[in-house]
């Protein structure tokens, strides 16, 4: 594997030495061992990117993006639906005053999320010792998912309850 010396900015650059050091064994736990980014990481990037591209392409080929009638301020659709990622908020809005559901709760959630790393003083990363943190986050997550699913699929005219397998009002 003889190669011509490489000169960079007037200096000879030494190669990276492969393999084990000249004396002694290297004792590195397997997980901490490092691997070359090229090819190992870049190849994974490429495969992941292609897989995502394929999925988006397939969805785009088989499902058309919605386009309703032209916007008309005189005709209010019933129900009026926000896109799915705000459906949870909209569901909340149907139960509480807009100041609470639209401003205070989302504001507190955002600020709380930003403050989380400074509030959680436990340095341990293992699930077993993180019961409080994991429980709190999971409660928020599940509550939000449930609200989103209800707002997205289980609400119909006048924000009344519907069964999505009977009447579908979800909007994407």
């Amino acid at each position: 594997m003889a190669e011509e010396p490489l000169v960079f900015e007037g200096k000879r650059v030494l190669g990276v030495v492969p393999g084990v050091p000249p004396v002694g064994d290297r004792k590195i736990p397997e997980e901490q061992e490092s691997v070359m980014v090229w090819p190992h990481l870049l190849v994974r990037h490429a495969v992941a990117a292609l897989a995502v591209l394929l999925i988006v392409l397939l969805v785009a080929i088989f499902f058309d993006a919605p386009l309703r009638e032209i916007a008309n301020p005189a005709v209010t659709p019933n129900p009026e639906k926000a896109p799915w990622y705000f459906a949870g908020l909209q569901e909340l809005l149907s139960h509480y005053h807009p100041l609470v559901a639209g401003i205070l709760v989302p504001g507190a959630v955002i600020l709380g999320a930003m403050a989380l790393p400074y509030l959680d003083r436990n340095p341990d990363r293992h699930g077993k010792t993180r019961r409080v943190a994991v429980a709190t986050f999971t409660i928020f997550l599940v509550a939000w998912i449930v609200l989103t699913i209800i707002g997205f699929a289980f609400r119909g005219p006048d924000w009344g309850w519907v069964w999505p397998w009977i009447d579908w009002y979800g909007e994407l």
Binding site: L67, E69, A71, V75, E80, K81, L93, E171
Partner: peptide
């Protein structure tokens, strides 16, 4: 896209 979906979703959002 300025269709009914767009207009009213944004109306709901900005009313908040």
């Amino acid at each position: 896209p300025w269709d009914q979906l767009a207009l009213w979703a944004v109306t709901v959002g900005t009313n908040m």
